[in-house]
């Protein structure tokens, strides 16, 4: 199945002043106290469990929801659980101005869409992207629509490689298909 179009409700990871939170590291996303958990389904309940103001995220998130967050999301360690916890909650994608290098690789290798956007910082600041808004995302073209507020914006389209790995559901399956 071609997975190019996504539609869902967004969570804007902002602080009390409404600013996008920057440099959210892997310990805030998935604390090292839970690294011993190996079953993906059990990781969801710890997502953002160490991020001030967002500890109840796993209870609020619905399958298909999307996350908008600040720059350098996923800084720090190489733990795969910081990606897997969102897969477990069936969060459909994350949009940020930038990601930590290893986090980005881990997400791509897991077939989880992580998308970069130059626009989201400004749009959040202007109040044009708010938690609860319904948005459509075309991961291939990068075209997005805020259905709630009726305007379009852009994310950087997935690279060919990222899209190919994503379509088959991860690096291992992608490798198998190459053969």
């Amino acid at each position: 199945m071609e997975r190019t179009y996504f539609t869902g409700k967004i969570w804007v990871l902002s602080d009390l002043e409404g600013q996008l939170i920057e440099n959210i590291d892997t310990d805030q996303i998935y604390h090292n106290a839970f690294l011993h958990i190996t079953e993906l389904a059990k990781m969801g309940e710890y997502a953002l469990g160490n991020l001030e103001g967002w500890k109840d995220f796993p209870k609020k998130a619905q399958p298909g929801d999307m996350i908008i967050t600040g720059r350098n999301f996923g800084a720090g360690s190489s733990r795969q659980q910081a990606v897997d916890c969102f897969l477990a909650l069936q969060v459909s994608l994350i949009i940020a101005p930038s990601f930590g290098a290893i986090y980005f690789r881990n997400a791509v290798n897991s077939g989880f869409p992580v998308l970069k956007s130059h626009d989201v910082e400004r749009l959040v600041l202007e109040g044009k992207l708010e938690t609860g808004d319904q948005i459509n995302v075309n991961v291939l073209s990068g075209e997005c629509t805020n259905v709630t507020k009726d305007f379009s914006f852009g994310v950087l389209p997935m690279s060919e490689v990222q899209h190919a790995i994503f379509q088959v559901g991860g690096l291992f399956r992608y490798g198998n298909e190459l053969r």
Partner: peptide, 13 residues
């Protein structure tokens, strides 16, 4: 330096 999924893939390919 890379994670173990990346290195597994590198061993194979």
């Amino acid at each position: 330096g890379m994670g173990d999924v990346d290195i597994t893939f590198a061993f194979k390919t």
